[in-house]
């Protein structure tokens, strides 16, 4: 419920509807079966799912907003809130877990002073936990944007984070 009320109060960015048309119509042919991939494309564009984009999408593909909201909240990838400039994904798959992934997460939380799913007040980092990126042999693994850091120790966290502005 929290998320829903926040959507209404937050200021959303300017939406370029032609750009949305390119995604919804151009790439995915207004096909509601492609809903998940359309949402992924929108999130790639805006870094999150802005509400006006979702209402527009609903009308375009003739799916109620409530249903789109359901899909957007069901799948872990989607965020209804703006995210930071850098996305820190800490892998907590089993292999990373037994190799001390939790300790790395704690260090990151302490260093950035945020917990899972939160964004630093300066908008620099968003912290997300993911369950297995499939690089288990390098555990514990931290992914920042598209960069992977394997066999990372909790004492290396600060140094790695400092590389991102």
């Amino acid at each position: 419920m929290n998320e829903a009320s926040e959507i209404q109060t937050r200021q959303d960015p300017e939406i370029d509807f032609r750009q949305l048309d390119d995604i919804i119509e151009g790439q995915f042919g207004n096909d509601k079966e492609n809903l998940i991939m359309i949402l992924q494309a929108i999130q790639k564009q805006y870094n999150y799912l802005p509400k006006p984009a979702l209402t527009y999408l609903a009308a375009k593909i003739k799916v109620p907003v409530s249903k789109i909201y359901g899909v957007a909240t069901f799948y872990a990838t989607f965020s209804l809130e703006p995210r930071g400039r850098n996305i820190v994904s800490i892998c907590l798959g089993t292999a990373c877990h037994v190799r001390g992934g939790d300790r790395v997460r704690e260090r990151i939380c302490e260093t950035l002073n945020i917990t899972d799913g939160q964004t630093t007040p300066d908008g620099r980092f968003t912290l997300e936990t993911v369950r297995c990126i499939g690089c288990c042999s390098l555990g514990p693994v931290v992914k920042i944007n598209d960069d992977m850091y394997g066999r990372i120790g909790s004492d290396e966290v600060e140094k790695v984070l400092n590389q991102y502005e």
Partner: peptide
């Protein structure tokens, strides 16, 4: 959709 953590 290889979701099992620890399998790749």
């Amino acid at each position: 959709d290889e979701g099992d953590p620890g399998a790749y």
